[in-house]
Design a protein around this nucleic acid. Structure first.
Lengths: 211, 211
DNA sequence: CGTAGTCTTGAGTATCCTCAACGAGGGTGG
DNA sequence: CCACCCTCGTTGAGGATACTCAAGACTACG
């Protein structure tokens, strides 16, 4: 997604509805008519489903600039919730956005690209979930967050979510997530300041994971 | 994706290149220029990547009618291979397809939908990977294959891939996949005719998984 | 200051991976 | 036609890993 695409899509903003959510509030719910496409403006949100066994699986972690809500069905097949206070979301009427896309090829092209972007996020998460050990999963998660953070290149990351959310994203138990983090800390691959501030010291070793 | 969308996209076929692949042959390779979008015409293909530890992860299983090759980057970030003999693939020049989409909103809309379709396949796989036990994963895999097969409603499925491919799709070892299948058989949830012909007897119990 | 939610650590158990062996089927070549 | 090889599929045994249940620290907030 180029900056030009982002700029083109801003022309939708005149029609958009900006909504504000508190932590834990539902942005859109499963099995309700899929009226809108969304862009996260600020804050953090999670897109999740509840599995037959009652567990929650987070399908996507939304950071500012991310588009979501794409579906082929008439209803959403997921629930989206704000993960922090003061989460702002731009809501685009699907009908109107599609009409604009039909009228303007540039918008259609930009829309395609943000959809491919969502595809790429899902692939990345799939690769993380496919890893064997818990330490590998948590390590890859930290690296992905660093890659998606604005200032992540330096190795400093502020985790956008709680350990519980990390567990539901990685399909692990909270305890295992916590243990993996302390393990990485003891092995000198990361350091912590508080529970959310992580500094990545050895990215390549994090990627490998196995001791 | 409606039949109308499928019909609209067939107008791209006049420009398409139909290629034929043997089992195991590479359709497109990682880190090569992403020139084409693809549609699987007949046969089966797998889209996969190799992880840092040398394992292979299958990111998507392509059945007839599935589109693939979408990426935001200039190069493919995956490898696609035919999984059976006589696999036919329609290759659409990305440039020309985009030009046609820009000229014709109907094509652009249909293209969006097949991209959302790919997104949905990925989400489904993510949900399967997130399940806890191996039996649950294999069970959900069988159900998904039944859902995607033309005559799967009856509960009869022909598995399109080997146990090894299933293992790489589910991020399990081959042995565990095999054991899970015999387990499901002993518990009376499925029956086998040969190794690839599965009949699903109790779909709901398969979904639950846990004994 | 108390309470609720978050985070961490411990102990025991169930699950899955690894290594290993063996059987079945399909091709090839003598 | 048969021996041979190769891939695929299954089963067994042992060890590593993650889950569950449980309890205790830390934090934020009213």
């Amino acid at each position: 997604v180029t900056s030009k695409d982002r700029h083109v899509l801003r022309s939708l903003d005149t029609q958009a509805l900006i909504k504000r959510f508190r932590r834990g509030q539902e942005i859109c719910g499963a099995s309700r008519p899929a009226e809108y496409w969304y862009r996260l403006t600020s804050g953090v949100a999670r897109r999740c489903v509840v599995r037959p066994d009652g567990r929650r699986q987070i399908l996507d972690l939304l950071l500012p600039g991310d588009y979501f809500g794409f579906t082929i069905h008439d209803q959403y097949d997921f629930t989206a919730e704000a993960a922090v206070e003061k989460t702002l979301v731009a809501c685009y009427s699907r009908k109107r956005a599609e009409a604009l896309a039909n009228a303007n090829p540039e918008i259609a092209s930009a829309l395609r690209k943000v959809a491919f972007d969502a595809l790429f996020r899902l692939e990345t998460q799939l690769l993380i979930l496919g890893r064997v050990t818990a330490v590998e999963k948590v390590g890859s998660f930290l690296l992905e967050m660093a890659a998606r953070s604005p200032n992540g290149d330096e190795g400093k990351v502020t985790l956008p979510v709680s350990r519980y959310d990390m567990a539901d994203y990685l399909a692990l138990s909270v305890e295992t997530v916590s243990r993996s983090i302390t393990d990485l800390k003891h092995r000198g691959l990361i350091t912590l300041s508080g529970t959310r501030q992580v500094k990545i010291l050895k990215p390549t070793a994090l990627q490998e994971g196995r001791h």
